[in-house]
């Protein structure tokens, strides 16, 4: 029986990673870039798009090959596919969105080592059909992006006083003594904000670490 594209099962594949199966806050993957790229909302958005693209395409390709990959070289093949995809996206960015590629810098290349990409390849793409794998890639990418943009929102807001480049804190507030919180732009701010967001997210989804 062929399930429709918008069947409840398929919708679940996309919706789950946004909440209860969120790759960052629940599965603790992909943290590196969640901290590094989140000083401004625009870089967070571009990174999300790149990760969604890499995840969905790599999941699909690996799923297509899943019955033919020899077990011994499994990880290397997966990584080669991911690395190639990232190279291609990097080249495209350098050609068509030069300023963005400069902003992302080495962090675009580090999508290759983004645990989410390899994690989903192993955990999902190797055992499921290409269609589902594609949706899973999109879902996880969006789940990742949600947290990323949330962190970036707070860091940009408190660190620069702007949202997506638009100045929110008025000049008047600055004149009356308000100052941007420099710590938000530096690394400790990233850690704190992410920690608090994970706390909020886990409280909402009621997922607890059994330590």
């Amino acid at each position: 029986m062929k399930l429709g594209l918008f069947s409840s099962k398929n919708k679940k594949i996309i919706k789950d990673p946004l909440m209860g199966e969120n790759p960052i806050s629940i599965h603790v993957l992909g943290i590196c870039s969640a901290l590094a790229i989140t000083t401004k909302i625009d870089t967070a958005i571009v990174m999300t798009i790149a990760v969604v693209a890499v995840l969905s395409i790599s999941n699909t390709v690996i799923s297509l090959l899943r019955n033919n990959i020899p077990n011994k070289v499994r990880i290397i093949i997966q990584m080669s596919v991911v690395a190639s995809l990232v190279i291609i996206i990097d080249q495209i960015l350098m050609a068509y969105m030069y300023d963005m590629s400069k902003l992302l810098g080495v962090f675009l290349g580090l999508i290759i080592t983004n645990c989410i990409v390899l994690g989903r390849a192993e955990a999902f793409a190797m055992q499921n059909s290409p269609g589902k794998a594609f949706l899973d890639g999109i879902g996880n990418g969006l789940g990742y992006g949600t947290i990323l943009i949330a962190v970036a929102f707070f860091r940009e807001m408190f660190g620069f006083g702007s949202i997506y480049g638009a100045q929110i804190i008025s000049d008047q507030m600055y004149l009356s003594g308000y100052e941007n919180n420099g710590l938000m732009i530096l690394s400790p701010g990233a850690f704190f904000i992410l920690g608090l967001i994970v706390w909020a997210h886990r409280s909402y989804t009621k997922v607890i670490d059994k330590e």
């Binding site: 603790v28 690394s187 701010g189 990233a190 850690f191 704190f192 920690g195 886990r202 607890i208 330590e211």
Partner: peptide
Amino acid sequence: MRYSNVPPALRGVGMAMLLTGLISMAFL
């Protein structure tokens, strides 16, 4: 931290993030 009373949803990753933030602040 095992002997501390950490709120349930903060245990694990959340707490580790806050701790790392403090360590990173020290290194600053």
